[in-house]
């Protein structure tokens, strides 16, 4: 089954799915906005971000606003491609089961 192959196990987690969704439609999103959006703890979010970064699905950009660090995230071409594949696989599975 080729559809099942396109289902990306990485995105089976709600937080990772949420991070990718937010980054798909925004040029970049900062840590606190993601935290609020997904309603998760700092540690939880950070670990999922790390996992996605390791796969080169997202990019981390650190900058400073005054003395505070401001970390922003954006999606990579690879991440976009993988996420789109995942979404269309989900849609196909749903329409098949109907």
């Amino acid at each position: 089954m080729s559809i099942i192959k396109n289902i990306n196990k990485i995105f089976n987690n709600r937080v990772r799915l949420g991070i990718m969704s937010a980054l798909m439609v925004n040029e970049n999103v900062d840590f606190n906005t993601l935290k609020e959006l997904l309603d998760v703890t700092d540690g939880n979010l950070a670990s999922h971000i790390k996992a996605l970064e390791k796969l080169d699905y997202i990019l981390i950009m650190k900058s400073f606003i005054g003395k505070k660090t401001n970390t922003k995230y954006s999606i990579t071409k690879l991440g976009e491609l993988e996420f789109k594949k995942h979404i269309s696989a989900l849609e196909k599975l749903i329409s098949q089961q109907k």
């Binding site: 089976n12 925004n26 599975l93 749903i94």
Partner: peptide, 22 residues
Amino acid sequence: MSEKDYLQDITEIKNIMNKSSR
């Protein structure tokens, strides 16, 4: 994952996309 989970995932994706950009 059952059908309901797939649907839930799609709903969640849409929801986050809207909430984060509009």
